[in-house]
């Protein structure tokens, strides 16, 4: 039973790591700010969820699991707002400079 649980937890951790990797590759490879945000926020939130779930299984305690859930919710919230702010800013910058919408501001 515990072996099965551990294997499942490890699988979740691996899935999380894969999503992080995908998000990071997207961050580096995608051409402009909006698509980078797309890669980063979506993939990383799934990745974090999966890692939190895996860690909760390994800890095997309800208290820890709830804490990890709280962490994930906070990270989700913060990522939402900051991604929103960055996206707005990059759109504004693009409008100001008259260039293609979504071009990276730097």
């Amino acid at each position: 039973m515990s072996l099965l649980l551990d294997a499942f937890a490890a699988l979740l951790l691996l899935i999380g790591a894969f999503f992080y990797l995908a998000g990071t590759v997207g961050l580096i490879r995608f051409p402009d700010a909006l698509s980078r945000l797309h890669a980063l926020t979506k993939a990383d939130n799934i990745g974090l969820l999966s890692i939190c779930a895996g860690s909760a299984l390994m800890a095997g305690e309800l208290r820890v699991a709830l804490l990890l859930l709280l962490i994930w919710l906070m990270a989700l919230f913060a990522a939402t707002v900051s991604a929103h702010l960055i996206a707005r800013r990059s759109l504004r910058d693009a409008e100001d400079s008259g260039a293609d919408a979504g071009k990276s501001p730097s």
Partner: peptide, 17 residues
């Protein structure tokens, strides 16, 4: 300060937390 409706819920949640 950015004028976006999302900031208020963020601050309202984060401050007490």
């Amino acid at each position: 300060a950015p004028d976006t409706p999302l900031l208020t819920p963020l601050v309202v949640t984060l401050a007490p937390l």
